[in-house]
Amino acid sequence: MTFDSFFQNLANGISLGSLYALIAIGYTMVYGILRLINFAHGDLVMLGSYFAFYGVSMFFLPWWAAFIFAVGVTAGVGVVMEKVAYRPLREFPRINLFTAAVAVSFLLENLAIVIFGGRPKAFSRPPFMDKMLNIGSITFVSYTPIIIAVSLVLFVGLILIINHTKAGTAMRALSKDIETTGLMGVNTNKTIMFAFLLGSCLAAVGGILWAIKFPQINPLMGVMPGLKAFVAAVLGGIGNVGGAMIGGLLLGIVEIMLVAFFPSLSGYRDAFSFAILILLLLFRPTGIMGEVQPEKV
């Protein structure tokens, strides 16, 4: 492999990885607080891209307004999802919460089939994202650096929110102990809602960027990115926001590099990421950045 194509693949891997990371953050925040694998999170990715699509094609919004509209509506869906389906189940056995997430996921996917139609739609990129860029002898499409830059800005923003705002501190406290945090005067419901809000916004951005990178959208498009992002969240150590970013980037780069170095194995791409996940779980069950929790008797 030449030096140039290596860099091209690396850029490609980083942009795919940042998408995984954006989506993985939502999984990890919710898991950190509620210990819930929110399988409906992947479907928010799909909703984000569909809302952006309709914002442009139906309401004739300029692309930036359509994107903001899409992020807003998706965040609304995320918050409603938490309030209707997950909040009443918080005190129930965890399998109920998990099943609720499965039900919400089925609901969103099939509602999308009913409302948007099952046939794939072509997502049109904003014109400036379609340009070919040449840096030296490396060529890539302009959306690649844009995806990386947007993700980077969001990562930094999120870390600032989590580490330096009151709501962020409350979220970190909740992930240690919900009940005690509530007793100390934190409004748990509002904080959990805020976590869902943040997660859904990032999922929507992830969905829009996903549709820009792979411009064909369908109601089940969120399933695979969702699952992969979830793998990324576990790789990084589920419950840990920084871990989700690292896990996502790692997964994206490794996947692209596997296909680049061993084209004959490209059919095994999905299997490969799960194999990495399982190997990691066996040797370091809490992921790269996860804290080891002692077994309590």
Partner: peptide, 21 residues
Amino acid sequence: IPGMRMVIFSVLLLLVILFSR
């Protein structure tokens, strides 16, 4: 209406979980 069956199923599943733990 394709997809309607699973919409109804998932709503029912959700209701069963919400109201009978």
